[in-house]
Design a protein around this nucleic acid. Structure first.
Lengths: 143, 143
DNA sequence: GCCATCATGAAAGTGATATCCATTGACATT
DNA sequence: AATGTCAATGGATATCACTTTCATGATGGC
């Protein structure tokens, strides 16, 4: 999985005539071995301890690049920060966001997607993508 | 409906010991007689022509106040601006957002909500609120 | 190794939101 | 109607999370 994404990214880079650099390798490694919903700042801080010479702008640009390469997706959960989540080929999921601890869980539900399609149809609407987020308290924070 | 909201807002204000002012009255009127998904800037510009002496900060603070009073709700549709929509007692709806013209339609679907509750339950999650947005092309833009 | 390009990082720029502060206004009390 | 008190206003400034600039440093095809 990590290997597949590294390969996908390498291909994307060479297709676009972009260069491979130490920083990009480090950021990719760190991103792939992270929690699935990191903000730029979180990833930057995580890297900072081991690689104090990597700048914020590089992390920012590299994450954008991941998104363009299709191995990451930009997401907004309303806390004012853009988060990047891992993308797996053909997979889609929605989110449970804990309003207390910020923990984000994922889920998939075919039945909901089907109902969404029906709603769209009755409005003559053509769905490109959707977002469904349930905000509340996670199992841990309920206690 | 407008009357009910004005009353609700007046009650909220007196409960909190806040004052009624010309500006707040004007902004409330303008908000209530507007499209359902205005940004701060849109409302400010709309007011500007008739009431050039109302400041941006006042519009900003007053909309926040509406949200606290429960007559408006802050929404993000990913265009980088917070929009305020009207809230009706006990009503909830989701959105169809046109990615071409920006048009926003609303819909309600009991069956989807029910499935959401089921998802939450299987995760031990307690839902406070949710957001469901379908992005794509509206009927008009499809042509 | 040379060199045209691309990449980097510190710093400056943006745009939307949030706050500050001197002045004004609302309203309960004389 | 005048006063006192505290909230409200609005212009200006600050903040926050990006986003871009630019001088310097790497990369990789020759």
């Amino acid at each position: 999985m990590k290997r597949a994404k590294k390969k996908a990214f390498a291909e994307f880079m060479s297709q676009r005539g972009l260069k491979s650099t130490k920083q990009r390798d480090i950021i990719l490694d760190s991103f792939l071995s992270s929690d699935r919903h990191l903000s730029i700042e979180e990833l930057y801080l995580k890297l900072r301890s081991k690689h104090p010479n990597i700048g914020y702008a590089t992390v920012y640009r590299t994450l954008k690049l991941f998104a363009e390469a299709g191995i990451a997706r930009e997401m907004q959960f309303g806390d004012g920060q853009t988060r990047y989540e891992h993308v797996s080929e053909g997979e889609h999921h929605d989110h449970l966001v804990c309003t207390r601890c910020g923990h984000i869980e994922e889920f998939e539900n075919e039945a909901i997607e089907k109902l969404q399609d029906e709603v769209a149809e009755t409005h003559g609407f053509l769905i490109e993508r959707h977002r469904l987020e349930l905000y509340g308290l996670c199992a841990t924070c309920r206690k």
